[in-house]
Design a binder for these strands. Structure first.
Lengths: 206, 206
DNA sequence: TGTACATCAGTGAACGCGCGTTCACTGATGTAC
DNA sequence: TGTACATCAGTGAACGCGCGTTCACTGATGTAC
């Protein structure tokens, strides 16, 4: 009796791909970067993991991006755009009382436990603040532009039309508080959950 | 004419060393870690750089430490001890008004430009908060213990003897604000110095 | 519309580099007698 | 106190691994005729 085993080589098709399909693949890589960079930091995610997450192999990365730095800057910009759009939505809420409610709601969500635990949907300021100083110049520029745009919108969202220096200072302090609370809460979430919750709770009152 | 060049092999003496000298060497490594980890983060400094900073070669590292993780935890603990001692000094300032002044002074220094730029003397909460979640369990434990001790002392330093829940919440918010402001200010110090200064200024009033 | 060929998004092996860690070796220190 | 030997803090080469990046190759797509 004879048993014949035929191994069919993967072949997986390394054929050329539709332009649309290629664009879709690129978008999937950016989407993976979007999630993973916020979750693990720029240096915590490799090119291979990124490509794997998008269902591709690492070799093709450079068909879409000049370097990992390049993708980092692209992802960072996209993430900031979305974050800015979100807070601008609050700033665009016209009526005084309604806007105040929307703003308070926004702030409460920001320092909530779900926000702390959803690291993949992390706020870019918190996700990247500690790392940017070690990244490329281009990324630092992108980050700084993003933060400025965000803070402007945040200050508008928190004001009631009046735009004095005092109001702006208050907004900056408020935002610093949110960032600090989320950062600290996350840093001890595993080892001292009670302290983590307490920090969040303190920042969400008022 | 003949020129003879004699190359004296470094020899640098790989002789055994006095116990005291060895302890001193170890201390120098810890001192380097103390400075460099705060400046560049745990992953931004290698064993070779650490040893070089202490005037040694990398091979001997494991005569003093079980692993890089081990040194990280040791350095982290030492850094926290010093930070906690510093804020406890403020908490130990007895008289009401004097203590308030000391506390306000402490806070103002914390978000000052010198503090922002002196990354090697960085506050451990700001230096490590973003990184701890990616480090070893032991380090996370050390960090959490340090943060709790620090916050307790900070709350005592900021209160006037009364110790209600409201006072504690207020202290946590205050500290979150300081950490957020310093973190954000530092993240854009290079690319947008005006914004950086503005964030610090906002957090230092009152 | 059909044919011939260049293009280029994929694949997966390989390169170079830096890192944490290990190792064989050295020789003055520290210890046992 | 003097001698003989084990110890152990150093050195510097080497290992193994993961990473960003490069490369030769593939073959359907897209284009030129």
């Amino acid at each position: 009796m004879m048993i014949t085993i035929i191994i069919v080589k993967g072949t997986e098709a390394s054929m050329r791909i539709t332009k649309e399909k290629a664009a879709e693949n690129r978008a999937r890589v950016v989407a993976a970067a979007d999630r993973l960079f916020r979750e693990k930091g720029f240096d915590g995610v490799g090119v291979a993991e990124l490509m794997g997450e998008a269902g591709l192999t690492h070799g093709g990365f450079y068909n879409h991006f000049a370097s990992k730095d390049d993708l980092e800057a692209a992802a960072c910009e996209a993430i900031f755009d979305r974050a800015v759009a979100k807070i601008e939505q609050v700033a665009a809420t016209l009526e005084g009382e309604k806007r105040r409610l929307a703003f308070d709601d926004y702030r409460r969500r920001y320092v909530s436990k779900p926000a702390r635990d959803a690291t993949a949907a992390n706020c870019p300021m918190v996700a990247f603040a500690g790392d940017v100083s070690r990244q490329s110049d281009a990324l630092r520029e992108t980050y700084a532009r993003g933060l400025r745009a965000y803070l402007d919108a945040f200050a508008r969202a928190g004001s009631q039309g009046q735009g004095g220096a005092q109001v702006r200072r208050e907004a900056l302090r408020r935002f610093s508080e949110l960032v600090g609370a989320l950062t600290l809460a996350r840093s001890v979430a595993g080892a001292d959950p009670d302290l983590s919750d307490e920090i969040l709770a303190a920042a969400s009152v008022d």
